[in-house]
Design a binder for these strands. Sequence first.
DNA 1: CTGAAAGCGCTAACAA
DNA 2: TTGTTAGCGCTTTCAG
Lengths: 314, 314
Amino acid sequence: MATVSRVVNGNTNVKPSTRKKVLKAIEDLGYRPNAVARGLASKKTTTIGVILPDISSLFFAELARGIEDIATMYNYDIILSSSDQNRDKEIQLLNNLLEKQVDGVLFLGGEVTEEHRQLFESTSVPIVLVSSADPQKKLPSVRIDMEKASYDAIEFLIKKGHRRIAFLTTRLRSHFQQRYNGYVQALKSYDIPFDEDLVAEIQPVYEAAIKKAANLLKLSNAPTAFFTYNDEIAIGAIHAVQDQGLRVPDDVEVVGFNNTRFSQMVRPMLTTVVQPIYDIGAVSMRLLTKLINNEETHTEIVLPHRIEIRQSTR
Amino acid sequence: MATVSRVVNGNTNVKPSTRKKVLKAIEDLGYRPNAVARGLASKKTTTIGVILPDISSLFFAELARGIEDIATMYNYDIILSSSDQNRDKEIQLLNNLLEKQVDGVLFLGGEVTEEHRQLFESTSVPIVLVSSADPQKKLPSVRIDMEKASYDAIEFLIKKGHRRIAFLTTRLRSHFQQRYNGYVQALKSYDIPFDEDLVAEIQPVYEAAIKKAANLLKLSNAPTAFFTYNDEIAIGAIHAVQDQGLRVPDDVEVVGFNNTRFSQMVRPMLTTVVQPIYDIGAVSMRLLTKLINNEETHTEIVLPHRIEIRQSTR
DNA sequence: CTGAAAGCGCTAACAA
DNA sequence: TTGTTAGCGCTTTCAG
């Protein structure tokens, strides 16, 4: 029995001829190792948990793919669960994952409150924050510099002469505030007055975006440019402009965020801030494997962003 | 110990006062049940496996959400794995899931070969085919009637007077052939000659679509309508038409497939065949729970489809 | 290099 | 209503 365990796990202390015999028996009997029993005995499940807001969102789906590919590479399975950004659900999901004895957890895109921190630190299971950072900077995380990304986008527009730049975002008073900070900072750097009417908090979907953008365009001193929380909102903005009989980018310029597939499927094609979504997932998973194996590693990884210039800006 | 097990599992044969004591001890000690041990003892893991082509595709991501919501409702966790439609990988993933002792498996969107069938039937773990059917009709499945859906779309276009209808699809000689059959049948029903030049097999992505559609439009007897494998391809077709200086729907009409978010984010908005994606996922998962509990049930479920008429058709 | 034995943390009879 | 006991199918010492 122990010998079978050895050959199944690739232990070298087995005489080649015995190994062959065991392998044959496994084949003949159609034996399939029971990973649950193995997990109980070894205290490793080779399964990690992923908590994300919504798998049906293009952004998180792409991130999940990055996670999955690396997980597969290191032989981990993934238990996926959507939290809808609901704190109670997040906590409940985490507890559930811990009961299942996952070897590690990837926590995506939620706000990290003090309650989260405590829970995260109360367990010895490694947890990495993906695309969201611990305000206290103590928990491992992988992300881009959101504030800088936002700053860069606004600066890009300012340098084109814009002074009335609308910012269409979501859940302003959460961890997304960093984007807002970048927006405000950029205006300040260039001595452009801040106008709160130009900042709108909406649901991050097309329908809400087109409506809100249309409203803003009707202002007497309407914005001449839009910067948005994601590409879907940006497309809404583009269409709102076009519905108004105006042209993008000639009359109004638009900059999106994320560089999802959407951004190339609209006319004019969208200029957008590139977040390396797949890579964020992949790097997070890689970091988690290191944490699981107690390897030495940086625990706060900031990936680069850039602006992909397409046709929605001049 | 047994009593603790009883209260944790909600067994009623426990004196209320004892229950209270146990609960308090659990609280005080921060006890967290070990689901792996439970799984080994009870032979149930409350985990199901999902094999799908690619989680980063909007279609499957939405389907996954449907699955997940119902899974959560019935207290199951989901192990997700992407197969890239690669048969070897599918089989390997399935074996892996079976090792992990999942209580059931959802198999999405792949072709079901004889090899699959054998593997599926060699295990007692229930498996349901989602959005793809067993040619032999023996395995449980949830899907729409693809052939009829395709037929309906083509008939819809024929009735508008089209006789040259291009069909932009993918992996023609696979289970997607049903759509092709529907296309051919509809033409036949209305005595319209079949022209193989109008059927194109492409990668199901925007870039490939726009290129292929542009080519077709340059034919001397170019198509006057496009029917596509999915919405992304349809958007490519729309843009190809517009690039040619033609108008949708005035000069060329376009019908997509799936009714993903994409379809409302393009101008003109896309007329498309509605596949109830989320519901397919949800119903599949519900069916799986019934199978797991040996409940009486239909095992071949065909969900309704319809055509959502928007602006890309007259 | 191989086998024997203990034990991972539960559930499920069964007895009390 | 509660406690005792025997596994579930592995891994991991430890002897040999």
